[in-house]
């Protein structure tokens, strides 16, 4: 074996090692591991179930796209502790949720309640769907009547009006100022 092939073999072995490590590293997270390290003991199955479902429904405030169950943040750990404490001292689901909302606001719940500040969140999509259906219906109706070019103009105007009205919650004509009537 000459020097070059020996060097090649050594390199190949090193490469294999690196690839092996990468493959193992990518497989590791898919093994069943849990972020929750604490060991909690519960008096009964209902308490444990309540605890488990609560930490899945409460948001970690620090890492906002994780729930308390998934997060390793310090605050999430504290809030899991608090949840555990409240569950084992006999608090109900509602009492725990109220405790968290009083401190962190509705945001802490992954299923926000329906109220004035979340109305847009809950009903916004339906409003947009209704707008889309209305526009589609108008297109179809006009198509049947002919005058294709005029249609496109009208649809553009309709969409603009609808968008403005949706954003401002009022008729665009009222506060629209024409350059010609400006004094």
């Amino acid at each position: 074996m000459n020097l070059i092939t020996r060097a090649f073999h050594a390199q190949w072995r090193a490469l294999r090692l690196v690839f092996g490590a990468i493959i193992i590293a990518t497989l590791l997270p898919s093994l069943p591991t849990s972020a929750v390290i604490e060991q909690y003991s519960f008096e009964n199955a209902q308490q444990e179930q309540l605890y488990q479902s609560m930490i899945k429904e409460l948001r970690c405030l620090v890492c906002q796209n994780q729930n308390l169950a998934d997060s390793n943040a310090d605050l999430a750990k504290d809030l899991r502790n608090k949840t555990y404490e409240m569950v084992t001292t006999g608090n109900s689901r509602k009492e725990i949720a109220d405790f968290m909302v009083a401190r962190y606001g509705d945001f802490v719940l992954y299923r926000p309640p329906v109220n004035s500040s979340t109305a847009l969140l809950w009903f916004g999509p339906f409003v947009f769907l209704a707008l889309a259906l209305l526009i589609a219906w108008r297109i179809i109706r006009r198509r049947r009547q002919g005058t294709a070019l005029q249609d496109i103009q009208d649809i553009k105007l309709d969409a603009q009006h609808a968008a403005r009205a949706a954003l401002q919650g009022e008729s665009p004509a009222e506060n629209h100022q024409n350059p010609s009537n400006k004094d």
């Binding site: 405030l61 909302v101 009083a102 606001g105 509705d106």
Partner: peptide, 16 residues
């Protein structure tokens, strides 16, 4: 509507 979302800071959780 989507543009409005860009201006909001999701890190700022409104205090109750």
């Amino acid at each position: 509507f989507l543009g409005m979302g860009l201006k909001l800071d999701p890190k700022e959780v409104p205090s109750p």
